[in-house]
Amino acid sequence: MTGAVAPPQAADRAPALRISHLRKSYLTAGGSTVRAIADLSLTMADGERVAILGPSGCGKSSCLRILAGLDTQFAGTIEWGNERAADASRLRSATVFQGDSTLPWMNVDRNIAIGMSGLRLSTTDVRRRVDRYRDLVGLRDFAKAYPHELSGGMRQRAAIARALATEPLLLLMDEPLAALDAQTRLVMQKELHRIWTQTDSTVVYVTHDIEEAISLCDRLLVMSSRPGRVKAMIESPFSRAIEPLERRRMPAFAEMQAHVWDLVAEEVGQTLVGEATR
């Protein structure tokens, strides 16, 4: 990143995203300043899956909101893989939120279709994408169902389909499985792995679940406690093709889990360690 020596063609795949020295401060209601992110840099290759891990309040959600375009007040630069960014048939980023974000007055298909309302697409294209991504997340039989008729996991699938249907350059996920029960979460991890592979998605995955991060991602960015900075960047020992449940059975999994936990625990601080291990 320091020298402009290497020509961009040298890389296998062009960088999808380059975040340089991102900084973010908030003004509280009381008028004081809170530094959320002190310094965050990250370069992502196309198709890569990066998890952002860190203690509560480390700025991981702030970072995601900035990438999602929900927050435009920040310092530092964010460069997008530019040759496709101008394409009006894809969103630069699409977000899957932590809580239920489906619109209750629309059925599944309409919920997916409305995500594309900001794109320049023909009705046939919208139709085609709705069919494709609704089927991909396993909601084929629930095309006309309303969110209140679906389980939490199914609603989250609809939200995932809505994000995927915009064929985003970057798929942002903010603890998308946090609200689900443990069994559903495991099933959904497997599903996410399959879906990302089929769509060749570039993913930023915010979570505080270490196992989930290792199960799903190629690299783990561990953030320090507030104000957040990059504490460590850990490469996953697993090849991308290995699916979550398989990874959990491999010895390297426990090893990496212990390693990441040590890094996170240092940051969480005594009181929070007590809470997390309770």
């Binding site: 999602a68 375009g69 929900l70 969103l91 980023s93 699409a94 977000t95 939120f97 809580g99 239920d100 974000s101 619109l103 007055w105 629309m106 409305i114 995500g115 309302s117 900001g118 809505r162 915009t166």
Partner: peptide, 23 residues
């Protein structure tokens, strides 16, 4: 969350009004 959805997906103003906030 509906504001976030509308912003994150860059909904055009008419979609925002008639398909998100009014419903």
């Amino acid at each position: 969350i509906y504001h976030d959805v509308a912003d994150a997906f860059r909904f055009p103003p008419l979609v925002r009004w008639f398909r998100v906030f009014i419903p």
